[in-house]
Design a protein around this nucleic acid. Structure first.
Lengths: 192, 192
DNA sequence: CTTCAAATGTGATGTAGGTCACGTTAAAGC
DNA sequence: GCTTTAACGTGACCTACATCACATTTGAAG
């Protein structure tokens, strides 16, 4: 499926755009291809864009002072990713974004998004919906992190996104769950 | 200050509404008063409204099977609160909302919000902005929960919202930080 | 096919924070 | 002002997970 078609499909689930409106909307996106392991946003960068995933898998993550990595989000096709804090507040990136696999994305600049939101009411509606969704998902994850142990969180994650199991190495899953890879590895070790 | 003025002040920081537009917007809000300890949303309720705090302090929280409480959010004046997951997805409440102190709120129904967003583009813009802000704040809190110890998180919280120190008992602060009240209490205990 | 790096498994040991128990202080309600 | 309840402090002990170290497996690149 074409990138344009994937995006259209995605957007049309939420809001109605005429074909001309969608063409106009789409004309602001730039298609980009990245190789596995390639960085899209690095700590300290100026952040101008958000990214709609067409194919492949991205991760957004934070590296702390001890070089420990925490994954904020995996991004599969039809997911959006960026350092949203830096993007919205015009600050330098504190979050990294890179490619777990080869990936194709559609890139939309912050300025263009705001322009489009302003020009086309349905586009503003779409982005409001998108953020609402991310917000409640993040709230749920926060509660789960406080309330559930690693094993439960791991199983919930795989239940929700089974495709991750095949694509994402376990050390990255651990970095998403907020535990060490050793602990994750021991979850299903035969009891001694 | 009047409730209307507080809301107008808050909204006008983000978006421009004419006086007539704001009056129309405001006409959909219902003022409600609650006593300290009173529940606004309880687990299992149908959730129809979100709440804009005029005065007082609310908390939204989750109670797990062991009756342990985790606080999702404190809501001070000009903050919005609800069970947003239930509100947006028309499901029963899994989050409770109640009053830490006597409180006055402005109540807006989900239907009215959607209607207003549809009728007035600037209102849709406002609510997109609001959720964006909540989204990045929640992402930050998630990372902090994974990356920082209790003491650091406690001090960050008080740095960000010093007013909480006087209003909110420590057992609730602990429930927000995701630790036991005993651990929080011991943070500044004289070393043995 | 071979080589090298990344991913994974596992033992030994350390530690932050949890849980239970009990006592004290402070503040809310009558 | 008295009484009752909520908030808070602290000791003893427990547990989930972290850390370090090293072995093994897997998979990617030449």
């Amino acid at each position: 499926m074409e990138a344009k078609e994937i995006l259209k499909n995605h957007v049309s689930k939420i809001t109605q755009l005429t074909d001309e409106q969608f063409d106009y909307f789409f004309s602001h996106f730039k298609k980009q291809s990245f190789k596995k392991g390639q960085a899209i946003i690095s700590d300290g960068d100026r952040v101008d864009c958000e990214y709609f995933v067409i194919s492949g898998c991205l991760k957004s993550f934070f590296i702390n002072d001890d070089l420990k990595m925490y994954i904020l989000q995996f991004a599969m096709p039809t997911w959006w990713a960026s350092d949203f804090n830096a993007l919205y507040n015009h600050t330098k990136a504190t979050i990294n974004l890179d490619c777990i696999t080869d990936a194709e994305v559609l890139c939309l600049s912050n300025d263009d998004r705001e322009k489009l939101c302003n020009e086309l009411h349905p586009v503003e509606h779409f982005f409001r919906w998108r953020t609402n969704r991310g917000y409640v998902a993040t709230q749920k994850r926060l509660l789960s992190l406080m309330n559930n142990n690693v094993k439960y969180r791991y199983e919930e994650l795989l239940k929700m996104y089974p495709e991750l199991y095949n694509i994402v190495p376990k050390n990255l899953i651990a970095a998403y769950l907020g535990v060490s890879r050793e602990t994750l590895s021991r979850l299903y070790a035969p009891e001694k």
